[in-house]
Design a protein around this nucleic acid. Structure first.
Length: 495
RNA sequence: GAAGGCGUAGCUCAGCUGGUAGAGCAGCGGACUUUUAAUCCGCUGGUCGUGGGUUCGAUCCCCACCGCCUUCACCA
C-alpha cells in the first residue's frame, strides 16, 4: 500500500537485529498467558527488592507506549482485555533480553514473564524478568494519545482503530453480547434458530432494490436476499411454530449514518400469536439486551406502562390537527410541502398519490421528528393497510393493518405484524403492488410458491423484524451505523 | 443521484486578500534506575489527494477527476 519510508526502514533493521540475536521476529506459540484484566485484578503490593515478591505472571500483547530510560524502561502492554504497565530494569533482565528490549518499536507484540506489583506511584505494573519476542510490526503505528481523528483513516485501518480507539473494540464486544442475549432469550422460550438461503430467485419480503448475481451452472440470475420473511413463513407452514433467523440482508440502496448495504436482521415468527404478543416479546427482548450490558436501565424501556402505544391516526391527528378524511389529509400534506402527485420518470405518467401514501408521508415528515424528541420508546400502530402488503387487516376496520413499529429516539427499531395468512388477499396485494411498477422493479415478481405455501395453510401468527445494527447503536449510544459494523462498505482504494 | 464541507509529515493539526511549507507527538543520535502525554540536548522527515489552467510565481484562485464527511433523495 504505502511505499517504504525511512520509518519502515528502521523497523526492518530492528527486525534483522532481532533475527541476528537468534530470536524469531514472527514469534512462536506462547502458552500460559493470563489476560491483562485478570492480572490487574490480582493483589498488588509495592515492589520491594529486599522483601517478599509478588505473584509471577505471564502476559502477551502489543506494546502501545514506551518511555525509555537509561537502565529503566516503562512500557504499556495492550491486549483485548486492557492495558498494563511494564517495568524493565537492566538488573532484572538477562543481557540478551535487555538488548532485545532496545529493539522494540511501538506496535510490536511481545510476551513477558515477571512479578506483578505496583511502582512507587502505585501504578499496577509487571516487572519484567523475561522477554519473548512474538511479532515485529513493520508499519509505524499512530501515536495514540491524540486518538485517531480521520474517519476515513479509521475505517480503512479498522485494526488500528480497534487498538487505539477504545470505544471501537468495546462496541464490538458489546455487539457480541447483545446478539448472544437475543439468541439465549429466544432459545429459552422455545424458538428454533434456522438458516435460510441468502441467494433468492425472487427478492421478496420487502420493497428494496436487491443486489443481482448469476449462477453459472444453472445459468440463472439470482438476488441477494432483502429480507428473511418469506422463507421463514414457509417454515410456519411446515410446522415449526416458533422460528427465528439472525442473518445478513442486502439492499442496493443509499449509504448513510443509518444505512449500510449489508446489515444484520433478526426476524422471528410465532404461530398463534399476533402483534400484541409480539409487542410483549419485543419489550422483554430489548430489556434483556439492556441488562446484558450492565450499567443499569438508562433507557425507560422497562414496562408496558412506560411505553406509550400510539395509534398512527391519533398521532397524526394530534400533531397535525387534521381530520381523518381525504380532503383534510391532502390539505395538510400540501401545507407540509409534500407533493401530492407521483411522477414515473420512465413513462412520464403523473398520478395522484393514494390517501394512504399521503398519510404515511405526513407521518414521516411531521410525526417522526416529534418521536425523535421523546425519551421514551414508542410503539406506533394502526398503519394504513395499503402500506403493509404482508400484514393482516384489522377485522373491525380493513383499511388499517395490524402492524406496529417501535421507535426509540426517532429511529425505527422494530417492525411487527399480525401476519397475513390469507392466500387470496395476499395474492391480491402482491398483484396490486406489481401494477404500474417500473421495469427496474420488475424483479420484485410475484412469488407464486409463497402464495402456494399459504394456500396449504399457514397458522395465524405474529412476526417481528429488528435491525440488529440499530439495536446495537441504541444500546451503545452511537449515532452512526459505521460505529457498530466493523467493516462498513467503502469505495475500494485506488491501486 | 443533488447540495455543502474537507483532503498539508507516520499520527493529530497550523499555514494571514498568491511569494514552492510549520508545530506537537512518533522516528534517528545522545543523557537518565520510578516513568505514566516522562524530561533535557541535537537531527531527520513533504509530488500540500490527482490532473489540467490562470499567473513572473499556486498548498492558496479556476476547471475536471478521486476519496471521505454532513444534509437531502432512495430505503412500503
Amino acid at each position: 500500500m504505502s511505499e517504504p519510508t525511512d520509518l519502515t526502514e528502521f523497523r526492518r533493521e530492528k527486525m534483522q537485529n532481532i533475527a541476528d540475536m537468534g530470536r524469531d521476529p514472527w514469534g512462536q506459540r506462547f502458552d500460559g498467558r493470563t489476560p491483562i484484566a485478570d492480572i490487574r485484578a490480582l493483589p498488588a503490593a509495592k515492589f520491594d527488592d529486599a522483601g517478599p515478591s509478588g505473584p509471577k505472571v505471564r502476559a502477551a500483547g502489543r506494546v502501545v507506549r514506551h518511555r525509555t530510560g537509561g537502565k529503566l524502561h516503562f512500557l504499556e502492554l495492550w491486549d483485548q482485555t486492557g492495558r498494563v504497565q511494564l517495568m524493565a530494569r537492566i538488573n532484572k533482565l538477562s543481557p540478551e533480553d535487555w538488548k532485545l528490549l532496545e529493539c522494540l518499536d511501538l506496535g510490536d507484540i511481545i510476551g513477558v514473564d515477571g512479578e506483578f506489583g505496583t511502582t512507587k506511584t502505585g501504578e499496577p505494573t509487571i516487572q519484567v524478568e523475561q522477554l519473548t519476542f512474538l511479532t515485529k510490526s513493520l508499519e509505524p503505528h499512530p501515536k495514540d494519545v491524540y486518538g485517531l481523528g480521520d474517519m476515513e483513516y479509521r475505517l480503512r485501518h479498522r485494526y488500528l482503530d480497534m487498538i487505539y480507539t477504545p470505544d471501537t473494540l468495546r462496541r464490538a464486544q458489546q455487539r457480541v453480547k447483545i446478539i448472544r442475549t437475543v439468541r439465549n432469550y429466544l432459545d429459552e422460550r422455545g424458538y428454533l434458530e434456522v438458516e435460510t438461503p441468502t441467494l433468492h430467485a425472487i427478492a421478496g419480503g420487502a420493497a428494496a432494490r436487491p443486489f443481482e448475481t448469476h449462477h453459472n451452472a444453472l445459468d440463472i440470475d439470482l438476488f441477494l436476499r432483502i429480507a428473511l420473511e418469506l422463507p421463514l413463513k414457509r417454515l410456519l407452514v411446515g410446522g415449526l411454530e416458533k422460528v427465528y433467523e439472525i442473518g445478513r440482508v442486502f439492499r442496493n440502496e443509499g449509504i448513510s449514518p443509518r444505512h449500510n448495504p449489508e446489515f444484520t436482521m433478526l426476524e422471528l415468527y410465532e404461530a398463534y400469536g399476533d402483534l400484541f404478543s409480539i409487542m410483549d416479546l419485543t419489550e422483554g427482548l430489548i430489556v434483556a439486551c439492556v441488562d446484558s450490558l450492565g450499567g443499569g436501565r438508562a433507557l425507560p424501556c422497562v414496562s408496558r406502562q412506560c411505553v406509550p402505544v400510539v395509534s398512527m391516526r391519533t398521532c397524526s391527528a394530534n400533531t397535525l390537527a387534521v381530520p381523518g378524511d381525504a380532503e383534510g389529509v391532502q390539505a395538510a400534506a400540501a401545507a407540509a410541502g409534500l407533493r401530492l402527485e407521483l411522477r414515473d420518470d420512465k413513462t412520464g405518467t403523473v398520478t395522484t398519490k393514494e390517501h394512504d401514501v399521503l398519510v404515511h408521508e405526513l407521518f414521516e415528515h411531521r410525526v417522526e421528528p416529534q418521536l425523535a424528541k421523546s425519551d421514551q420508546p414508542i410503539f406506533v400502530y394502526d398503519y394504513p393497510a395499503a402500506l403493509c402488503p404482508l400484514t393482516k387487516r384489522k377485522r373491525e376496520n380493513p383499511a388499517l393493518a395490524e402492524r406496529f413499529e417501535l421507535y426509540v429516539h426517532g429511529m425505527e427499531l422494530a417492525n411487527a405484524y399480525t401476519e397475513l395468512n390469507d392466500p387470496i388477499t395476499q395474492e391480491a396485494t402482491f398483484r396490486r403492488q406489481l401494477v404500474g411498477m417500473s421495469e427496474e422493479d420488475s424483479m420484485a415478481k410475484m412469488d407464486e410458491d409463497f402464495i402456494r405455501a399459504l394456500r396449504y395453510g399457514m397458522p395465524p401468527a405474529g412476526g417481528l423484524g429488528i435491525g440488529m445494527d440499530r439495536l446495537v447503536m441504541l444500546l451503545t449510544n452511537t449515532t452512526s451505523i459505521r460505529d457498530v459494523i466493523l467493516f462498513p462498505l467503502l469505495r475500494p482504494e485506488k491501486a
